[in-house]
Design a protein around this nucleic acid. Structure first.
Lengths: 201, 201
DNA sequence: CGTCCGCTTGACTCAGATCAAACTTGGTGG
DNA sequence: CCACCAAGTTTGATCTGAGTCAAGCGGACG
């Protein structure tokens, strides 16, 4: 499903015109524990869902960019479970949760699309859990690359910096760079900047 | 949402009477890569979704028991992404994917319940990803316990053996037992069999 | 031109994986 | 009722690999 198709789930609803909100880089859209009143569609920029442990360490659980909806799984929650933070300057459309629920109730087609969207997210999180369950750094990297490689292709260009990839697969960036170096030395991958090719499958 | 309520999403549909299938412990319901034709409701026993790496190591991505539906996120997929294996002797009702989709299209109420169900699963997987992203064994255990503790309570009884918990949070069982021992020694938890109490929050 | 940030490599430490072994428990069948 | 077996639980010894701290390189951007 394309991103614009997703956004469409919200945008084309006959609602009160949604509010808008602009966030500076690093600004917080909502905090864990706050009541869920709204859900969002991102028109520009990039948001992330993070959970901050008591000790202060941050885990990014989800990232979404322009054209994507945000916080849909919270539609049925009383309170947000994570903090939402803008990675860069970001603009969102603000939809009232109650309006959205009412609107999709009336439109099976849109509801079905939201259903499919959530199903995909469940599978995406399962894929990530699989990666995170592996113990060796090289295994995590290979698993990540295999899961993100377009089927049939044997090479791809990542759209995020390796440092972010490291965080996503639960490694320090040093460990990731070393794993990449080892894999390349062993002839498992070939790499040039953000472009990687898998050699032996 | 109660388990029986979930099952109800499928069961109370006016469909051709669903098929049945019985599986012995360890038997496979479907394999990754197979075409998705059916989804299931468990009437007895317990199923797990596992992914097996090339090296042979297994990761359990989901477990479901009596009264729960199974493989719903695959409703919109062409092929299964995981293997489904019975942990113990299990019986399932077999619903044709096409029938289910058609049936929920006609019933906004049931569709909404499925929506809510998937939203909960996304959040559950996020919680697991959070745990798996932590580096220290004791942190993972504390995070797991906090997330599974009924709100307000300060103690709980686990319904699965610690060994399974270890797998779920990405530790060997030895590492888990040692982490538990350390936490108990440090006065963070108290434990008696499968019952645990959190002392300091 | 200078600063920031992603990238890369080195040295050291230590927590968790691994292998091994014993004990406890529950259930089965003789 | 007891012998036996399987599985979960617990503890020990060893070793590897990822975290951590540190330092240097290069490109992007103001």
């Amino acid at each position: 499903m394309s991103e614009s198709e997703i956004r469409d789930i919200f945008q084309s609803l006959a609602l009160q015109p949604p509010g808008r909100r602009a966030l500076a880089a690093g600004e917080c859209l909502f905090r864990a524990g706050a009541r869920v009143k709204d859900v969002y569609a991102i028109t520009a920029g990039r948001l992330k869902l993070v959970r901050t442990s008591l000790a202060g360490s941050e885990v990014t659980l989800h990232r979404a960019g322009e054209g994507e909806t945000f916080a849909e799984p919270s539609l049925f929650s009383e309170r947000y479970h994570c903090d939402a933070v803008a990675e860069i300057a970001t603009e969102v459309l603000v939809y009232s949760k109650a309006d959205i629920i009412k609107a999709i109730s009336d439109d099976p087609d849109r509801m079905m699309r939201l259903l499919r969207h959530l199903a995909v997210q469940v599978q995406a999180m399962r894929a990530r859990a699989e990666i995170l369950s592996l113990h060796a750094a090289t295994d995590r990297v290979m698993c990540y690359l295999n899961l993100h490689l377009p089927s049939g292709a044997d090479a791809m260009t990542l759209d995020l910096p390796w440092k972010q990839v490291a965080a996503e697969i639960g490694l320090t960036h040093e460990a990731l760079y070393r794993a990449l170096a080892r894999l390349e030395r062993d002839g498992a991958i070939r790499r040039n900047g953000h472009t990687v090719g898998l050699l032996k499958r």
